[in-house]
Write a protein that binds this DNA or RNA. Sequence first.
DNA 1: AAAGCACCCTGTACGC
DNA 2: TGCGTACAGGGTGCTT
Length: 276
Amino acid sequence: MPELPEVETYARDLAGVLPGRVLTGAWTDWPNQLPLNTPAGLDAGVRGQAVAAVGRRGKHLVVRLTRDWLIIHLKMSGRLQLVPAASPPNPHAHVVFGLDGGDALRFHDPRKFGRVYLVADPAVVLGALGPEPLGDALTLDRFRSRLAGRRGRLKPVVLDQTFVAGIGNIYADEALWAARLHPLRRADSLDEAEVARLYAAIRDVLARGVAARGTSFSTGGYRDLTGNLGEMQGTLAVFRRTGAPCPACGTPIARLVVAQRGTHVCPACQPLPLER
DNA sequence: AAAGCACCCTGTACGC
DNA sequence: TGCGTACAGGGTGCTT
């Protein structure tokens, strides 16, 4: 579930409390969530290492330890929870890190799609990611040149983590609506103004998501470290608003499937011109 | 290159 | 209430 804004919220909150803390070990009951480590290797590997810094790259939470890097991807149903070690057990916490001082960092993930990596070189996990959409390095010029080489449909390109890192299904739909671009447009069919609109819309939507501390749907969805909801769901224009009026023109929002993902558009604001 | 599909897993919402 | 079905905020790997 978590996309860039949700992971950024975890990273900022953890950056305020984890640096300097020492990991006392790691426990897991689902080794498939550790593609590069054994449970015993993770436990022994983290033990005694202090947290040097906490950040984010794309949708990955990146924890720099004294010697290694702890990288977590929450995929569809992952959440992080910082709790006292004596808290009641959580049956969906499949990886748990102990912290000196008695707290635990829990990786709660009912669907078990999420992944935890302990690596000496973060590029092993992060090396293929595209640029950060909110970073200074992604200028309009660079965005335009990256887009120019793509012949596929717009939405799959926007979701491609090697194109730009961190955009997921919610923010893709919201950005395409804000840019007034249909998700099935060919990526190389955009004119100058449309490219500029998409660039600005991606950055604006993600920045608003971060400011809102993420998007939380009713049950089972994203919660922050201490269980609080994000605020972005109240201002979504199209995502999961099928049939509801477009905030810009009142036309009912339509749902279609693009690249096997539910996709939401305003049929009036995001027309699909004839192509090919 | 790009698109389609199976797969990794479980929980929730909704129609009947 | 119970049951069946669709759907889910992600990503990889394989085949056309």
